[in-house]
Design a protein around this nucleic acid. Structure first.
Length: 565
RNA sequence: GAGCGCGUAGCUCAGCUGGUAGAGCAACGGACUUUUAAUCUGUAGGUCCUGGGUUCGAGUCCCAGCGCGCUCACCA
């Protein structure tokens, strides 16, 4: 956290960026309650792997937390709990795991009682918890992990569970009207664990024994009667009462949730109030939509994964996406990535010159917890230092026609002689992303064609003409050679184009042929420069492959493989 | 049925606490490159969905309407 800065502190009081708006609610809440610390919670259901929504929730909650710390001069301690609902029963076998039979044999048990199908952890729940933590750690989030199973077993929830038993009728009174008739007939906020099978039982409760803190129920299959303690992990709660109980037991002050949970938040809040506590502050963020405007869901597998995003864009660009307009539905698809990357770079570049007020409204302040790094500038020839945009890299990589970072760096150095992967590590990461983008979006769109007889002859001659330049990186000389060949095979007939020495020019058709036959593109780079970077020998090999029909065949095979995948 | 959000240039969208409409791409023109990419630069393009209200002043705030989209009502 940045050291106290009076200018920053006063700017924070009037800051209107949404994390500050949220943080101000918390300041008022603390003033009213007199609490000495603030607890933020994010929830996680470990029946699957962490996904992009998990990232968003933690990232956004962290932004509110940072704003709160500035607002209160860091005088009130804050904690962020990542809570895993790992006592939940396994309802169905996920598609994306090995050893499905193993899981199928353990349905309905708490996730922490289901063996790990990956064989690396003590349970499926523990495995997914570990994945969550590794995931959050990889982004450097500051948080405390908490397991529902451990909390229940350790008795951490016991006092609140007893309270809920006492107010059982109030809780039922809140829940029942929200349910349909057939469901409300059998509903219970408590789910006892079966003493013999270990299953999380969703059964009607025959009797609630408040003094003993037990429930009396029957196994619907065997008819056997059980009396189960709700304490120490003998039972867990249904989701909405569970959420409410957790808020009360842990003292959660802030938790945000998706729009799909609006009604749940409402009910859980009522339950929390019935337990005599104030439900946490927070807000409902909008859901992400896929390219067709549908809700992104884990089960459907539509939309983007975190891995997808990080293939083409930086973590910071993903954070920016999460920062922007959390209350509006946004399309989350590949094509939004380049813009987020560039917007981030632009905000970062502006930051140093901004005053405190503007800084607090700058997304990079929130993304980097008040301490954004210096922008990585590049000094172009005769130009002022600036950030190289991702859009420019994407253009460059398309014309460079390469999956090699070194070739792309060659093009970059033409623009900015001083730059290298060593001096510009951030830019080097962007290069990697741009290459991935080329590989997956640009290359598949290429359209090679076979050369005509005339083009074939010209290309063969070009290859010969280049031979004496082996090893040369003289772009001008190479370009002259390209023109020389073109002049004899594809002279300009319009009379418009002229060479510097007044000789006839070269037809556009020559260049078009080069790009379409050799690069599979309608347009391309200045060819002499391309050869200089790509290499004379490599270019001659490229021509040979084109004349042998291999480029066309390879690309068709590439496209076919892709279509099959 | 209930809730949430959106409607601004051809497209995608910015417009923070009300003060003369902005960006990127696309289009068209120019510079540079021997005529292709990049880069630089110029031009054009908008009843800010409609109708009221508050105000000296509304894209922005309030109300109503129209249109579009999403979510929830079994489980989490």
């Amino acid at each position: 956290m940045t050291p106290p800065d009076p200018d920053l502190l006063s700017a924070a009081q009037s800051a209107s960026a949404w994390p500050f708006e949220e943080a101000k609610k918390l300041v008022a809440r603390i003033a009213a309650s007199g609490k000495r610390e603030v607890l933020f919670e994010t929830g996680y259901g470990p029946s699957g792997l962490p996904h992009i929504g998990t990232f968003g929730e933690v990232a956004r909650t962290t932004m509110v937390r940072n704003a709160f710390r500035v607002l209160t001069e860091d005088k009130i301690p804050t904690r962020l709990v990542a809570f895993s609902d790992d006592m939940d029963g396994l309802r169905k076998v996920p598609d994306n795991v090995p050893n499905k039979e193993l899981l199928a044999a353990n349905l309905n048990k708490p996730l922490t009682a289901v063996p790990d199908p990956f064989g690396t952890h003590s349970s499926f729940g523990a495995h997914n918890n570990a994945r969550l933590r590794a995931f959050l750690d990889s982004f450097g989030f500051e948080y405390e992990f908490m397991s529902a199973t451990e909390c229940y077993r350790a008795g951490r929830f016991d006092a609140t569970l007893r309270l809920m038993l006492e107010r059982y009728d109030d809780v039922m009174g809140i829940m029942l009207p929200s349910l349909r008739a057939e469901r409300s007939a059998t509903y219970s906020p408590f789910l006892p664990l079966h003493p013999k099978t270990g299953h999380v039982m969703q059964v009607p409760i025959d009797e609630v024994r408040r003094e003993a803190a037990t429930l009396v129920w029957r196994d619907p299959e065997t008819g056997e009667r059980f009396e189960t303690s709700v304490l120490g992990g003998g039972a867990k709660l249904q989701w909405k009462p569970d959420w409410a109980m957790r808020w009360v037991a842990l003292g959660v002050d802030y938790e945000m949730a998706g729009k799909d949970l609006i009604d749940s938040v409402k009910l859980s809040s009522e339950i929390a109030r019935a337990l005599g506590a104030a439900p946490p502050d927070g807000f409902n963020y909008e859901l992400f939509l896929d390219e067709k405007g549908q809700k992104i869901s884990k089960s459907k597998g539509n939309g983007l994964t975190i891995e997808d995003w990080l293939t083409y864009g930086t973590p910071e660009s993903l954070s920016l996406f999460m920062y922007n307009k959390p209350r509006e539905a946004k399309r989350l698809f590949f094509d939004v990535i380049p813009r987020q990357v560039d917007d981030y770079l632009t905000f970062l570049e502006k930051y140093p010159a901004q005053d405190s007020k503007l800084r607090l409204g700058n997304p990079v302040w929130h993304i980097h917890a008040g301490a954004p790094p210096a922008p990585e500038l590049v000094q172009g020839a005769g130009e002022r230092a600036a950030t190289i945009s991702f859009a420019m890299l994407l253009n460059l990589v398309a014309v460079a026609n390469t999956e090699e970072p070194s070739v792309l760096w060659g093009f970059i150095r033409r623009y900015a002689p001083g730059a290298s992967p060593q001096t510009h590590p951030v830019l080097d990461r962007l290069v990697t992303h741009a290459l991935a983008y080329y590989r997956d979006f640009v290359r598949p769109a290429k359209a090679y064609r076979a050369p005509s007889e005339a083009e074939r002859a010209a290309l063969a001659e070009l290859s010969e003409a280049l031979a004496p330049f082996a090893g040369s990186t003289d772009a001008e000389a190479l370009q002259a050679a390209v023109y020389e060949v073109g002049r004899s095979h594809f002279p300009d007939t319009s009379g418009k184009a002229k060479s510097p020495d007044g000789r006839p020019g070269v037809s556009q058709a020559w260049f078009s042929a080069i790009y379409q036959v050799l690069l599979g593109e309608a347009r391309g780079p200045r060819f002499g420069s391309f050869v200089a970077l790509y290499g004379v020998a490599e270019t001659r090999a490229l021509i040979a492959k084109a004349l042998a029909g291999e480029l066309l065949a390879e690309h068709q095979a590439f496209v076919a493989t892709r279509a099959a995948a």
